[in-house]
Amino acid sequence: MFPALLHDALTVGAVLFVLGLVGILTRRNLIVMFLSAELMLQGISVSLVAWSRYHGDFGGQALVVFVLTVAACEAAVALVFVLQAFSRTGRLDAAAWQSLRDAEVPRRIDRELPATDAAPPVWPQLTPAGVRPRRDETAEPEREHV
């Protein structure tokens, strides 16, 4: 009785929507966040088209056209914001922007992270003969606080 295609397409749309939502909630790279937002819009488009087909009405498809337009506009604006943010902080990190917060809340700092997934390569340093070995501070693996 109920068309299977609608059911399945709506489910696909819902899955895409939720994936996008999870992405925008978790990923800290501003560009990935934006892509996740677009993923949400994709889910919405799929659902809209599915309903449009079920109802035999083109309004839904028309709405998808506008969703696409809005996505394009958002992309333009997002690009500007992301670029500006990058030029100011040198990072694409969403969590780097914490200077606006309540006066009583301390700044949130992540746990320390190693610079790469693998153990940092430590190159042997040959000490010239007769000289006391000296630690090179700059060669220490940089530990980033975010």
Partner: peptide, 11 residues
């Protein structure tokens, strides 16, 4: 390379 903020996620 991978930035640190790409290798962790928020909650």
């Amino acid at each position: 390379g991978l930035a640190p903020y790409d290798r962790v996620s928020n909650e």
